[in-house]
């Protein structure tokens, strides 16, 4: 597995993609301002997406929703470091495909950049 950063250009917003946003609600490792801006931008768009309080918690409980998400492909995950997110999915027995998945890291990327990549011109 390799870590990757989000580089895939956004085509038509929403077309066939699944977006998962992690709120990292039970720790202060992701800057509150970044989360707030990203969530506000996503919510204000008309994009359908899944938002979870804490992806780590879902992984620990091996929530089947992660398996369904991983199996679908064309997934964009907004959370933290790609290496952490990939191995969290693995821990949940829901390996992400090697490609076709983009992980946006709220710990080291500006919210405007993440929104731009997710929503393109709509952000």
């Amino acid at each position: 597995m390799t870590s990757e950063t989000s580089q895939r250009p956004t085509e038509e917003p929403g077309a066939g993609r699944r977006v998962l946003y992690c709120h990292c609600a039970f720790a202060r490792v992701v800057d509150e301002g970044v989360k707030e801006k990203v969530l506000h931008g996503l919510a204000s768009s008309d994009l359908a997406f899944d938002a979870v309080p804490d992806l780590c918690e879902l992984a620990a409980r091996r929530d089947p929703a992660l398996g369904r998400l991983a199996a679908e492909g064309r997934t964009e995950i907004v959370a933290c470091y790609p290496r952490a997110v990939r191995w969290l999915f693995h821990a949940a027995e829901a390996d992400l495909p090697e490609d076709d998945v983009t992980i946006h890291n709220m710990r080291d990327t500006e919210p405007e950049t993440i929104l731009d990549r997710l929503l393109g011109d709509d952000s």
Partner: peptide, 18 residues
């Protein structure tokens, strides 16, 4: 809702986890 620990599937254009 997220702060209360509730997972949310928000409808709109595009797809969400089944």
């Amino acid at each position: 809702l997220l702060a209360q620990g509730v997972a949310v599937t928000a409808t709109g254009s595009g797809t969400v986890a089944p």
